[in-house]
């Protein structure tokens, strides 16, 4: 509907992120992600948006840490998951640049998960089950995914649809910037996430993404993520490209 080509992306100010998890919960509630059963773990759960804690690798008391909210990085250039899917269940929307999983076509081979350098794809290891009655509180705009398929963040594409419908109802050809924001962006209490059209040179997200303090994860792979991070801290920026072997690795949050 929208004639203009857009490239939606976000800039996450990791200096602001306190790892409160609001984005993760907002995302799960918005996208009808079921709560993991009792035997799920951080390796089998579904967190389309997930916050990782990273640190500077030093010991107490010099240790400093940072929280990285990582959802699908919305690779702009040859997304690794698109080319590996044997049955075209991952599609890139040309009009918005959104990389979207089509769970109904997914057979659950999980090759895309192996291909994703950001571990941003999640498999439905269990049937989606909510406690009795809770399924009535699910978001009617988002369909459920069944067991055995892969899912990931699609930048709350349904919200874009809603915004477009609203624009159309009001006789506008284009949606207004700010009419469409993903749930995580909306939920962040620290306003750490800026979302918008990276092609729109007047947008805040464009401005922030062009700053020297902005970086993307694993840029060396050439996948061109549309999710930018920004930090004033040198060591944090260095994390993006750092050889995982040279850092002691991720630390689980322990508070």
């Amino acid at each position: 509907m929208s004639a203009k080509r857009a490239k939606y992306g976000m800039v996450i100010d990791v200096d602001r992120c306190t790892g409160c998890g609001a984005c993760m919960i907002a995302c799960a509630a918005e996208n009808n992600v079921p709560p993991g059963p009792a035997d799920s773990t951080d390796r089998t759960g579904i967190t389309l948006m997930r916050i990782y804690r990273a640190d500077n690798g030093k010991d107490f008391p010099e240790n400093e840490s940072v929280f990285f909210p990582v959802s699908c990085q919305q690779c702009d250039h040859h997304p690794p998951c698109v080319s590996v899917c044997p049955q075209n269940a991952v599609e890139v929307d040309a009009a918005t640049g959104i990389v979207a999983q089509i769970p109904v076509r997914c057979l659950g081979c999980r090759y895309c998960m192996a291909a994703c350098p950001y571990h941003a794809r999640y498999f439905n290891w269990w049937d989606p089950v909510w406690p009795e009655g809770m399924e009535r509180e699910l978001n009617p705009d988002v369909s459920l995914r069944m067991r055995g398929v892969v899912e990931k963040c699609n930048l709350c594409f349904h919200r874009l649809q809603t915004a477009r419908e609203k624009a159309a109802a009001e006789g506008r050809a284009e949606i207004i910037a700010g009419e469409y924001v993903p749930a995580c962006v909306e939920a962040c209490p620290a306003a750490a996430i800026t979302f918008g059209d990276l092609l729109d040179e007047e947008s805040e997200v464009h401005r922030l993404s062009q700053r020297g303090e902005s970086f993307r994860l694993l840029e060396r792979l050439g996948t061109g993520p549309k999710v930018y991070y920004t930090s004033e801290r040198e060591w944090v920026r260095a994390l993006a490209e750092k050889d995982p072997a040279s850092t002691p690795g991720r630390t689980a949050a322990t508070d």
Partner: peptide, 16 residues
């Protein structure tokens, strides 16, 4: 190994 064995034939149907 695939999550949705009944859909295995989709690979033939919508091959990438």
């Amino acid at each position: 190994d695939v999550g949705q064995p009944l859909r295995a034939w989709f690979t033939f149907w919508h091959p990438n």
